[in-house]
């Protein structure tokens, strides 16, 4: 059986969390299937994290062509690596790069592919089985995967990374230039500008429980610390404390962030309409019977004016 191969992704010369999870899974699956784990990374400036990955081998694809992600270049290089290593399984994160590469690579190589995986395991009869989140998370699909090069994209955060290290064999190859996709420039989102709450991944959303416009500062500090934006319920806008572009709900914006932190919001139907599809909802409200808790995943009954600074303090502490 071929190796289990994790395709790694870097962000600012750091291995992403999602990639570390892939490595952990590649290792454990390889052990169970009786094969080796391998990884492939892109870029010339790979750090120690990659040299000490707990896998048998790391193929490092370098050269000027891979300085930034461009689908055709990466695909072409990967296709060669796959041909050479003949992996049993290829793992990618379900990130922009994974979504882009996974499907195209599958189509080019004619290998099966599975998207949106949240679990991968070897069952009692030694079959490789994956679980995928489909239909907006309303259903889970349990799928049997052939071990002849199946490509899987995994939703980040599906399992923890183990953090073990090893001494992999390193192989350097240089990627060739492939015309077709050219990176004109790489940019950062301007975080100073008035954020569009429909695009923010994390929303710190405050309701009338904020009580006074002066307390908004607490919410803004928290949003800053957590890396999110501040949104609110309608009465906060009515009071003129925040502008209408921050309002979530029926007569405001519909948001689907990765995390919606509802602070001092009762959860009126008009408000819920705008946020109930957020991936994760955490609500804090002094009233344990507030309807917001019917849609929240986690909840607490504290005073938000105490909670916000406590949370900010912890998050800032982590940064240093």
């Amino acid at each position: 059986m071929g190796p289990v191969l994790a395709v790694l992704e870097m962000n600012a010369n750091q291995l992403t969390d999602a990639s570390q999870e892939l490595v952990t899974k590649a290792k454990s699956l390889a052990d169970e299937l009786g094969t080796t784990a391998m990884a492939v990374a892109f870029g010339d400036e790979i750090g120690d994290a990659i040299r000490t990955l707990d896998v048998g081998k790391v193929v490092v694809i370098g050269g000027p062509a891979v300085t930034s992600y461009a689908s055709l270049v990466y695909e072409e290089a990967l296709e060669k690596v796959l041909a050479e290593l003949a992996p049993a399984l290829v793992l990618l994160a379900n990130s922009t790069m994974g979504m882009d590469l996974g499907a195209a690579l599958a189509a080019r190589t004619g290998k099966p592919m599975l998207a949106y995986a949240t679990a991968l395991a070897v069952d009692d009869s030694k079959q490789l089985v994956a679980t995928s989140q489909v239909y907006g998370g309303k259903l889970l699909a349990e799928v049997q995967l052939p071990t002849e090069g199946t490509i899987v994209t995994v939703i980040p955060g599906s399992w923890p990374a183990s953090g073990t290290s090893g001494t992999p064999q390193l192989e350097d190859i240089t990627a060739e230039m492939v015309p077709g996709v050219e990176v004109v420039r790489v940019m950062e989102e301007d975080s100073g500008a008035d954020v569009d709450i429909t695009r923010a991944e994390i929303l710190v959303s405050v309701g009338r429980g904020i009580q006074d416009p002066e307390n908004l500062e607490l919410a803004e500090e928290l949003a800053q610390a957590i890396g999110g934006a501040v949104s609110c319920s309608r009465p906060v806008v009515d009071a003129g404390w925040l502008s209408r572009s921050h309002q979530v709900g029926k007569s405001g914006k519909t948001v689907k962030p990765k995390l919606y932190l509802a602070l001092g919001i009762s959860g009126a139907p008009e408000h819920l309409q705008g946020m109930k599809d957020a991936e994760l909802i955490v609500a804090v409200n002094s009233d344990g019977k507030a309807p917001i808790f019917d849609v929240a995943h986690f909840g607490g009954t504290a005073d938000i004016l105490d909670l916000m600074p406590a949370l900010t303090e912890r998050l800032q502490g982590r940064g240093q």
Partner: peptide, 19 residues
């Protein structure tokens, strides 16, 4: 479940693509 259309079609066409 088995991959997104954009990448799959591009892969089959051998065309430039981005998702």
């Amino acid at each position: 479940l088995d991959g997104q259309i954009a990448g799959l079609v591009a892969g089959r066409l051998g065309a430039a693509h981005a998702s």
